[in-house]
Design a protein around this nucleic acid. Sequence first.
DNA 1: ACTTCACTTGCAAGCGTTTGCAGATAACCT
DNA 2: AGGTTATCTGCAAACGCTTGCAAGTGAAGT
Lengths: 390, 390
Amino acid sequence: MVQGTPANLKTSTPIVAFLSAIVCKRLQKIFMNQPPNRPRKKTQAVTIVDVARESGVSYSTVSRVLSGFEHVSDDAREKVLAAADRLGYVVNVQARSLAGGRSKVVGVLVPALDNGYILEVARGIDEELNKEGYSLMLYTTHQHAGKETQFVNTVANGLCDGLLLVVPIVPDHYLAALQDRMFPYILVDQYDATHKSNTVYATNWQGAYDATTHLISLGHRRIGIITGRMDLASGVERLEGYKAAIADHNIPLDDDLIYSGDFFQPTGYTGGHHLLGLPTPPTAIFASNDLMAFGVLQAAGERGVRVPDDVSVIGFDDIPHSVMVHPRLTTIHQPLDQMGRVSVRMLLDLIEQPDKPPRNLTLATRLILRESTSAPRMMSPEGVKQTHNS
Amino acid sequence: MVQGTPANLKTSTPIVAFLSAIVCKRLQKIFMNQPPNRPRKKTQAVTIVDVARESGVSYSTVSRVLSGFEHVSDDAREKVLAAADRLGYVVNVQARSLAGGRSKVVGVLVPALDNGYILEVARGIDEELNKEGYSLMLYTTHQHAGKETQFVNTVANGLCDGLLLVVPIVPDHYLAALQDRMFPYILVDQYDATHKSNTVYATNWQGAYDATTHLISLGHRRIGIITGRMDLASGVERLEGYKAAIADHNIPLDDDLIYSGDFFQPTGYTGGHHLLGLPTPPTAIFASNDLMAFGVLQAAGERGVRVPDDVSVIGFDDIPHSVMVHPRLTTIHQPLDQMGRVSVRMLLDLIEQPDKPPRNLTLATRLILRESTSAPRMMSPEGVKQTHNS
DNA sequence: ACTTCACTTGCAAGCGTTTGCAGATAACCT
DNA sequence: AGGTTATCTGCAAACGCTTGCAAGTGAAGT
């Protein structure tokens, strides 16, 4: 055995002398089996060659045992697994992936690490990924501002087997590039109008409809809304759900009660102040997500408006904080971690069978009753009707 | 040009006919330059060979230009860069790392994705990493329960250039394995008594001392503490800081006021109930982190004990939520994201110079005054001394 | 007993890099 | 001018793996 090299030219030795008379120096060197001094890697990891030697089979058999168990005798498999275990062998992902195998890494693209929403989804993703023995590569988009193409190339070239896009807006050419390369990806919490992508989505319209209906059924008639971003499907749909519920209960739509927000706390805060400062303020406010609902709570607190006594507040998402505010927030639960889990499952499916037709999965939201909503004052048992507006 | 292979045996063609008469079939095949049908990869990415062809230099020159600019003429460099740009070349990380280069990936090991603390640190890490063009591989430890060695091997073998350990407890053999392999790593928010590791830490003792002193200076004398995990240095040090402050102000230490928690909300909650239910309850409570402080707030709310009127509460960490609870939490700010940033910087340093002696960096905490602390009732202007305990 | 066939195994090539070595060229001394 | 040195460039090997191909093996079919 020579130096653990694949011993490719072993058979040639007998003819070296003969050849050397004829062929050029370079060719000869190919035949001479003396490696130059090349002790580069310090961490001499155990490779399949070691496992092969240890178990007495060839390295290809080892490879076959270790990745996909195809056409290997039980005997060989057993020996290999034992040897691998004994040696503490760990596959070198990079080599495997270079050679055309799976890297068992999936990329997760998120806008930023700045709120609990991402964390929840990521948690689901992480858990499901771990179950399947995959690793998670986290990319934040701000990293790639302006060079998205580079990014797509990096990912598709790179070590990820698939990509989870948890970003609100994905530029079209992103998707185009991914589709082009047949690279498996899933849009998480996004709707793809073109139906070319696999998506996991939630019932945003229905959730908003339920939230609004809840408020109406409590007796509210003047219901404000703080919208999300209107360039996001979820933002639009939540507004539409609100409008539909209002209309279905024959309440006239009042544009003054619609404040346009952006899914972040500050606009919830200003929106809260705006709505509560109206000549005839709403008795209930539907914030298109919890973060903005927190802003409303804050604004209400500052104005001495009590929740839910003076104004009911309902959110959307049910992020962990919503039980930590006072009063605890009534909200629409969005199964964020489940969303993460489901997307992982879809992605792994897709990695196995890349040409499956795209599916669009929609998960159900549900109303979570807590203490931030109640019947409006004028309808409460005490009937203190005039206190506020007279 | 034949098929883009490295054209290694081009020169041999003239002698093939001659050789074929003598050498065995296998050898002959080596010389024939007809590749078998091997169109495996579908994503025909652009490689350095393409760039080389495009720019008219050899692929090694391209490689040299692209990684570390050593010994390349300006002319060549320019041509290569232009060609790479034109072709949209993106380095294949796996190949580079296989061949011995840097992968520009660092691994981040966290216990789980279940609280804002991690998120904050991760945010700092992410931002700093992006600045340097590194990618982030996220590992959660629950994945590796019981097979830590495997994990260490995977990472060290694998594609990470370095490792950030944001886990509360790192098994010794973990560290030993990493040290063994000379693998660059940093302990984040941990103290290494052996001084063999690079660490980034915060002034836990001082922070606790400050928190307690703050309460004392407000007039509190009966101050409860809910401790963190006692198997964590930070937990121990915060308790010590508390004790030191008490002693320095000649307040006797009362073991009844020490409730042992675990840094998670539930023990804060039960601890809050416990302390507030004592015959002589404390007038102030120092929770060893914000999460537990939230638990205390909740317990207080349920008991009708008002914060800060009846009891002051102070936390530790200053996670984003601490401004979102009511009342907003007075706490000790721990520069979590800065901690992330600093660790990244240390790690990248270490990657460059692996044999630098270990450094231990400690970042300063500071008191953040909000509304959850005030002077105790018996000292407040109204002097309603007896209301509570009579 | 002799094919035929299915199954198992091994060899070698190649995935896209980096890098030691050695030509080639240019620049510098003497 | 001749020799030496420094600088640049190119070749080929290697990193650890997967996989097509072909050779080997034993069981089944005739």
